[in-house]
Structure formats: C-alpha cells, structure tokens
C-alpha cells in the first residue's frame, strides 16, 4: 500500500513551551485516519507543523515518500486543508472567495465546486462577514474539497455544523475515500470518527500514545471489571490491569483478559462482588487520557 503522508518523530517547541513532543504516523492511499486527542493535546500544532505554517523543531514530514517543502507548489496543489477556525476575507462574498482560490490552481474545478455549493446549500452572493459559524465552516469545506485534492487535512471539521450537515459531510468523506483520497481527520471525539475512519491515532500531551486500526481496537474486547473482595490486593497484583477507581476492598479495572483466564484467576479468591460491564469506544478513549 502506498504511504501518502508520514510524520516521523515530529517535534515542535515554541521557545521553551511544548507544542508537540513526538508525533509519528503513517497514512496510506485512500485511508481516513482519525487523529484523536483532547483540547490542547497538540492536534492543531501537529497539523500546522506538517503544513509548514510553523517551523518544526525536529522530525520529518514526508508526502509520497519525499520531504515536504511548503514552497513546493506542485505538492501544495494536491493538498486540501480545512482549519479548525475559519478566517477568510470578510469583504469578499462566497463566490469571490471561491473564485479567488481558483486563481491559484491551474485545474478547472467549476463542476466539483458547483456540486459542493449545492450539497452544502451555500448562497454564493452572501458576504463572508455575514455568515454564521456553521456557514463559514461549509465555505471552508468547499474550499478544501473543490480542487479534488489527493490529500485532505481536516482539523475539527464538524464543529459548528448541525447534525444533518455532519451527516452530509461524512457521506462526502466516504465518497472521497472511494475515489482514493487520503484524509487526516482531527477530532476530540472518537465516536465522531469511529464510523468512518480506518485507523486512529491518539495524542496526549504532544505524544502519540496509541495507533491502531479501528477494527483492532473494537476487537480488543475491553470491559469494566468491578471486584469487591477482602483479597483485593492479591487480585490487583495478579490481574495487572489498569485501575479506573479504587475504594477500600473494591476496585474497578479496565480489563482485556479473556473470560476463561479471568475466571481461572478469580476462582482462587473469595469474592464479595463481581460485575463485568461492556465498554464503549468513547469510554475506552477517555481511559487513554486518565
């Protein structure tokens, strides 16, 4: 599979302040990669560093195997970018900003542009300054997709969009994926991306803490295991699971031991309480950050 976008140990410091510490990821052709992390974890800094808006402290950004140079016009023609906060020229109308962007590209994209404007129900004669946050986001989406780029970088793309438009947007992503477009999708909500992403990477305090295919994460079969016992300390030692909460003789574990092995271990002890609960992907995500 062709690697389209690769980050190798990307690090960014603003003087002595950490932006990102160590971010590595690989996105293959036609993949949607969910880049997940809470606010302030370094998602936007990673994106801004990879696009060359800020200078990296160290590490590498490779596009199609070659180091990315922000002055490489040919490569930039193949990248669509939707920032988390849309700031466009307020004096322009929607039509004018779309026309203006078109002047930077040799390829005619009128047909795709018309489709997108229709899909997101945009009024082209409206001024940017008169648009609501959601409508500005829609203009940003049209700008990112209208040149039919090979790589699309989306930073919190659905913030400000209503649920109907979020659905329209996700369908658009799936269509793009079908065509072979590679997408980096940054979000702080795992459930937002879990249905459309192939792979997810979790970032915490500027460091990638986990990266895996969504299917594998689902297969990990994590459960919440609540045990109450006077032997709780011995059980804790033997299970070696992550502890979610602890009080006197009762502990809630994040468990991924298979049921048979778990029962074998627990059968050795006198238990007062045993509860096994299914865990949602979102809960699992939250546990990475505790």
């Amino acid at each position: 599979m062709d690697t389209i976008l690769e980050l190798k140990h990307l690090k960014k410091y603003y003087g002595s302040i950490r932006g990102i510490e160590d971010v590595s990821l690989k996105i293959h052709k036609g993949e949607i990669y969910g880049f997940i992390g809470p606010n302030g974890s370094g998602k936007s800094t990673t994106i801004r560093t990879l696009l060359g808006l800020v200078n990296k402290t160290s590490g590498e950004v490779l596009i199609k195997g070659k180091p990315f140079n922000p002055d490489d016009i040919e490569i930039k023609q193949k990248i669509g970018y939707l920032p988390s906060e849309i700031n466009l020229y307020d004096d322009m109308t929607v039509k004018q900003i779309l026309d203006y962007q078109q002047t930077f590209f040799p390829k005619d994209c009128q047909q795709k542009r018309n489709e997108l404007v229709k899909l997101f129900k945009l009024e082209e004669n409206k001024k940017i300054e008169d648009l609501s946050l959601g409508n500005k986001k829609k203009v940003g989406i049209v700008l990112a997709f209208m040149q039919e780029p090979e790589i699309i970088i989306l930073d919190e793309p659905t913030s400000g969009l209503d649920p109907i438009m979020q659905n329209v947007f996700h369908n658009l992503l799936l269509q793009e994926k079908e065509k072979g477009t590679t997408i980096l999708y940054s979000s702080h909500l795992l459930n937002e991306v879990s249905s459309i992403c192939d792979k997810v990477g979790f970032i915490k305090d500027g460091v990638m803490i986990k990266e895996d295919f969504i299917d594998n994460i689902n297969k990990e079969n994590y459960t919440y295991l609540t045990i109450s016992s006077k032997d709780i300390h011995k059980i804790k030692k033997e299970l070696k699971c992550k502890i979610i909460s602890e009080k006197e003789n009762e502990i809630v574990f994040l468990n991924n031991i298979d049921p048979n092995s778990l029962l074998k271990i627990l059968s050795k002890y006198q238990l007062d309480k045993l509860i096994i609960q299914e865990i949602s992907l979102e809960d699992l995500f939250m546990n990475y950050y505790k």
């Binding site: 808006l53 023609q77 920032p83 906060e85």
Partner: peptide, 16 residues
C-alpha cells in the same frame, strides 16, 4: 492580524 494567512499560506503559492 486577520488570521487569513492560514488560508493564503496553504494555497499553492510560495511565501516569497
């Protein structure tokens, strides 16, 4: 100042 540089600098145009 108007934060429009993020739009402009990510278009296919050299900084120079």
């Amino acid at each position: 100042n108007d934060k429009t540089i993020e739009f402009l600098a990510t278009l296919p145009i050299k900084r120079s």
